[in-house]
Amino acid sequence: MITIKNLHASIDGKEILKGLNLEVKAGEVHAIMGPNGAGKSTLASVLAGREEYEITEGEVNFDGTDLLELSPEDRAREGLFLAFQYPIEIPGVSNVNFLRTALNEIREYKGQEAISAKDFMALVREKSAIVELDAKLASRSVNEGFSGGEKKRNEIFQMAMLAPKLAILDETDSGLDIDALRIVASGVNKLKSPENATIVITHYQRLLDYIVPDFVHVLYNGKIVKSGTKELALELEEKGYDWIKAEVDKH
């Protein structure tokens, strides 16, 4: 699905990603954990195509295409989705209106016909139900006046609408109470299939009780420094990152 090789990225002359390698196959769930400032959101932003970052080295192959050559919109159209750590508010731009435009531009890109208004509304109803997002919220201005939890649910709602091949969830669990966490996680699980894959960035092992990962990686100082199975998340929860930092810094 996605193969990241020796990725180096910097911003304002400061190198943040320092030779990152990661491979995610279809049907898999990968968790990325790591201390604050390690570069987790940077990785997500670079993959989504944020233009402020300079890629100095490395390559990213996304289902056969050179991801780094694509504009942000074409990455989305190829099936990449990023649930933002801090979803932005966009006053005056209606959630459903922009999603309809997005969906249709994606369909056009794939040579498919535009979705009818009726089918679109049916899709909105179906997908907003998955994350228990109030239909009223679905049609309001993007995230405007939404609570923290509603914003995160809106991200998953949009993900459900766009049905991506690869979803990257950047701390979608942060700031959620246990009920919201369950809703969001079950939303993600319902959308899971053998053809798509998910990368969840999180600080909390509790999310991984709901979204069970096939692999857990530790990102530290711009690199994946340790990979393992879900037991690694438990170990990190218990012992923190110091032992890993010590291990890395020793070399």
Binding site: A76, L82, I88, V93, L103, Q158, L162
Partner: peptide
């Protein structure tokens, strides 16, 4: 930031 958000959802610039 908003322009990027919308583009990341598949809208052209």
């Amino acid at each position: 930031e908003a322009v990027f958000y919308l583009r990341a959802r598949g809208l052209s610039e």
